[in-house]
Write a protein that binds this DNA or RNA. Structure first.
Lengths: 222, 222, 222, 222
DNA sequence: CATGAATGAGGCTTCATTCAT
DNA sequence: CATGAATGAAGCCTCATTCAT
């Protein structure tokens, strides 16, 4: 340890360099928080930069505009998680009722109860102003999600566990409570006075039960 | 009365028409459209005025600020319709299953399938930025709605038609598809490519069925 | 009194007609009050109209613009009073010291302690923005005033009552306390906390005494 | 160090010069000029910015609003100079008559004959519209000034140089010519035709003489 | 690369002025 | 003549974006 060259002395660019790689993701995380919290228009880029610990100008080194920052947030938050979930469905060994229950609770744990669900709200709210983004969201998020749910339902039908209902409608039936929870969490759910009224987990359990009743679930044939 | 030639018919290009009586509602209608379409922040007051056929300054003769215009839209669109609906519930003579079906389809006809549902989306999206407005919405819209649904469900329970489920959760179960439809209609539903995928009426029917199954509806005791 | 034709029945234009003549002066009075109270820019024409009991449009029937209204106020308030005062000086029979005392107290009673002094303040404040008006004020008010004061002083000198001072400077010495009182009355003097600190009449008395001392007043030679 | 060629000399037309340090004072100077010249309401912030050589937005980096800019001008121009003046009074060794003469001429050199006297005019003119500002001005400018003048007069009385007059009134007698000069300089005094009529220094000399006569000045007792 | 001072288009709001009734 | 609803230019202020350092 001859010289303490690694210590961040006054002008050492070490600190900057060290974090250069992570700057975009830090900015995206800050932007996600603020967009979800305040909406797109009400969020100022300077706030995003501050929360990410950089200056306003730096943000524009990584994202050419506020619009592009928004698109990047959507892409990062929602892309590339369906592959993993699809594998889980494929390798699931329990009953389809259990799979449906597992899937919906998984969604809550991994999406609904995280900032990611804020993006759902954000897309639904601001999609109109970003047609390009809406198309992207439709193709990269809505469609994969839809397929995934349909595969779960089809599995139940194929195995004789679910009645042969209209899969399209049933998919929406699954989706509605998730949308509802996402919206609830990020709107009225943020007010303390109303926050304790709805227990999301109990609500999800009840929804699964209703859905299964609606699907006239039967035990897997022996 | 062959031709009402003296009436200032619709297409009259006359400027400076004096119609103080109808201005507020025209402005509110224009504002509703644009707020729903583009969100609060992205809507410019000049656009609202233009769509209402007046100049920017005229808007401020009737609403002291953009915020107040927004509040007025909320009031006009959502408040004060629950009294009528409450009466309908009181005087309903059919089964509670029919009442639930009727209520949800009524909502679709009178709210969901109109611009009014856009305000639901808007409130959920922008409420954070208007704490005062959020409180108003909670008190004047959410609470009355909640009470109304609970009364329907309680009626079924009291008459032995519905199982004695958790009314709070059941209310959310009723609400979720409505929220879903409202969000769907005003986001992805506006794109032609996706518009035909979901038939709201069939979806509602299916939801009612699922709910009734979930509530283990039984025929009214003979 | 055969028929009560003079009673102001519903649509009788009598009331309007009766006051048509006085409209301009009512508007000028209202404008004077408000201009003095709030300044030119901060006074809205609608306020002036309201205080005069007419509508905004009516004001523009009598004055083509807010600027012209201001000019009219200046003209009306300050024109044609010097002739009367000049006569008073001519016919004054007492000593010149008494004349100076009388003149300054007269000014307070007729100008300083009325809204007219507000115009002094107003001209001093806003003259820059109305070069034309400033010239008018200079010619129609300042010059006549100046002449009047100089005649009083000259009278004292001619009669051996005042020392033969620089009349120009002496005129300003007379003027300063009047300007001071006018400004004081319409600025800090309006606040209750400071209003009672200065008694204008005592202040004027003291000023006259100082002036007379300064002019080394001597009794008129026997 | 023959030539400082690298320094950004005065005439550099470069835009986006970064001079955070000097911006506030440049803006304050520009604002002072314009406020004095045109009044508060008639001065547009963009004018102030232009005169300071910056853009509209830059002004708002340093002052959060036009009102605050005005307050800052008042603070910088008038407050915080009384301490220095108070010291001068304490350490003055001449007669009280000389002190009075010195004080009034000092005022002319340091305030009356500078833009600072424009703020006096401005406060008197616009104070009504800024109650908060008026209170600040009263506390930070009027009161200290008043105390200072009274101390000068009291010194003369204590030393037997001045008659024991009403100090309150005497203070106003001292103040009136200063107010008069300030108003005169910034209203009619700006017009060339009238500018040469009054020589402020001679006027002040005459006023001092009148005051001293009025105070029945006597030589300091031997 | 990073900074943050500077920019200026654009939004909300006011209000003098117009004009159909 | 009188009204007051309507207009639109103009002002204050914000903030996404740029760029000299």
């Amino acid at each position: 340890m001859p010289t303490a060259s690694s210590s961040p002395s006054a002008d050492t660019p070490a600190k900057r360099m060290r974090r250069k790689e992570s700057r975009p993701s830090e900015l995206l995380a800050a932007a996600l928080d603020l967009f979800v919290e305040k909406g797109f228009a009400a969020t100022r880029v300077e706030e995003v930069a501050q929360r990410a610990g950089v200056s306003k100008g730096t943000l524009f080194l990584y994202f050419p505009s506020k619009d592009e920052l928004f698109k990047a947030v959507v892409r990062q938050t929602l892309a590339g998680r369906f592959h993993e979930w699809s594998d889980e469905v494929d390798s699931f060994t329990g009953s389809s009722a259990e799979l449906l229950h597992y899937g919906m609770h998984s969604w809550w744990e991994r999406v609904g109860n995280t900032q990611a669900s804020g993006m759902t709200k954000l897309m639904l709210s601001e999609a109109q102003n970003f047609p390009e983004m809406a198309a992207f969201y439709q193709a990269e998020v809505v469609q994969p999600y839809h397929s995934l749910v349909q595969r779960i339902l089809q599995r139940g039908v194929d195995r004789g566990e679910f009645a042969a209902v209209d899969l399209e409608l049933a998919t929406y039936a699954v989706t509605a409570p998730l949308i509802f929870l996402a919206m609830w969490k990020h709107s009225v759910g943020t007010h303390p006075c109303t926050a304790s009224v709805l227990d999301p987990l109990r609500y999800l359990d009840a929804q699964v039960q209703i859905l299964l009743n609606g699907l006239r679930v039967r035990p897997a044939p022996a």
